[in-house]
Design a protein around this nucleic acid. Sequence first.
DNA 1: CTTGATAATGAAAATCATTTCCATAAAGGA
DNA 2: TCCTTTATGGAAATGATTTTCATTATCAAG
Lengths: 157, 157
Amino acid sequence: MSRGNCQGQGWWHGKFRGCGYRLTLGREAILDVLSKTDDHLSAEDIYMKIHPKHPGVGLTTIYRTLDVLSNLGMVYKLDFGDGRARYEFAEGPKGAHHHHHLVCTECGRVVEYTDFIDEEMELLKQTEDGLSKKYHFKITNHLIQFYGLCQECNGKK
Amino acid sequence: MSRGNCQGQGWWHGKFRGCGYRLTLGREAILDVLSKTDDHLSAEDIYMKIHPKHPGVGLTTIYRTLDVLSNLGMVYKLDFGDGRARYEFAEGPKGAHHHHHLVCTECGRVVEYTDFIDEEMELLKQTEDGLSKKYHFKITNHLIQFYGLCQECNGKK
DNA sequence: CTTGATAATGAAAATCATTTCCATAAAGGA
DNA sequence: TCCTTTATGGAAATGATTTTCATTATCAAG
């Protein structure tokens, strides 16, 4: 049973079974929450949102499920440097609109921006190619984030 | 403490006292280790290196000192996503050579690259300006990292 | 609609890097 | 030297995430 290699393009009903995973109530609840928010939720945030309706779903399951979803590519795991991971639904079939993040180091607010993405992507591709060749790395991923103070936090000082 | 190091001690000393910090044996030992390596050391790595010569310096002090140094700008705190922070000496007066990192997700190896930095910096500046204006953020920092498999880890598969 | 193999689950305990507490020691100006 | 303040270490606390393990649920097959 090969689970690490199921990067098919079908949608998530088949995506689960195709990889030998079972579709459970908890998993559906988590996908449901993530697919309906624009926020970047932590495991506990998700737990809080799910708990009223599904008191039976524990935090452990949330973590385990997020891990599975992340491996399946249905969810992105994000790290904004505050010690807790955030998760974001990876837009399914309609195509992921690529974006990067702008993070307020004071209040934690996160802005997704898609501006400048084209230029960034262009440069990234070049850089990746160059680095790959020079350092013999097979580059699979990149991380770009800007940090600073949002208008509100900047005003407070 | 080695006597051949007086000039280095000099500028550290001034920087510390100017901010009301005291120059202690532990702090000097930590700066000494960091200034003499090209590796990205974790707090515990540093502890290990210092312990033989200074058994009296505890892990707690390492953490506290790294925090101070980081605030003073003498050291950069890095996050390669493996759950432990790494620290890197911020080349003092002679000028920091700006670089970004390429991280192997398998073995953790880290390559510092300075190639492509000019182009990256150019684009970053433009992007920062644009983002600042549009989202009213005062941008103070950025994070750019590439992840992938180093030659060795890639071969193993 | 059962069954059975196997995956999924929750609660509690375990990890692990980092912090906090607190009583003691050291630094540096007076 | 004395004194006030900052620094220290060891133990305990923290907090997000994982692991353990006994129990339950899923789903393909009969």
